[in-house]
Design a protein around this nucleic acid. Sequence first.
DNA 1: CCACTAACCTGTAGGC
DNA 2: TGCCTACAGGTTAGTG
Length: 295
Amino acid sequence: MPELPEVETVRRGLEPWLEQARIESVTLNRANLRFPFPADLVSALEGKTITSVGRRAKYLLIGLSSGQTVLSHLGMTGSYRFAEHGIDKPPRYYETENVPKHDHMVWTIDHPEHGKSHLIYADPRRFGFVDLYDKPEDSPYLTGLGPEPLSNAFNADMLAEAFKGKKAPIKAALLDQRVVAGLGNIYVAEALHRAHILPTVLAGSLVNAKGKPKPALEDLVSAVRQVLVEAIEVGGSTLRDFRNAEGGNGYFQHRFAVYDREGEPCPTPMCTGTIQRIVQSGRSTFFCPVCQKQP
DNA sequence: CCACTAACCTGTAGGC
DNA sequence: TGCCTACAGGTTAGTG
């Protein structure tokens, strides 16, 4: 689920409730998610104060007063939410019935303004994970990442450098987190549609003979930025189960031009095309065969 | 270097 | 109602 706009939405929802909060206790309801929880996670968290709630690509980065940083990835179905305030004991859902069975990690926190509450991490498919670092920039999850797509480091010149001679389809190239970090299946499809580029064209075909970006690559950079900004503004996309930290959903799914719209008319003005679905790298790709072209 | 598949795991939607 | 299949926002390892 969560691509950059959804993770940013979660981050913004968590920040006012977590920053300055003290972690009183931590309960792990199982030993692992995608990977085992770090052996020292509970002791590293308990008694510390949260100093920051950040994000890099699709990773949440929670800074602690000890100087350490919690790195959290939501996988496909991970979510953070708060239990109602004023509860004294953390919920141990696995021991009871009638309660969510995918609540794997619970932090009992005390915030100077908001008081006590429980932060709950739930994740039905358990593709997410939590890790702990002294210096998060050394984490193998972050070291190889490409630039943030909303930063100035992401531009047509750097994309041209990355795509020069590259034979992978542009769709696969944009999903490669080493090229640009934070895009997923939804926003790649939407950005390519806005830039009028077919997802099947080779990445290298967007670069000219001098290694400089063709105009279509400039359009693509703008489209990526635009679609991400719009999505963040409306709280991301809720397809099945995405919820922000306050329990609300996103609204960008109503603005999808192509994603999950196979058979529907292309929304591009004057375009007569019908949205098609193909499979690339084992994943669905949605596009309009009429207004998306080979540059 | 690149493409494709399977794997991790659970839930849900659709066909019969 | 139930059973079965296909598929889902991500990432990684293995194979050809």
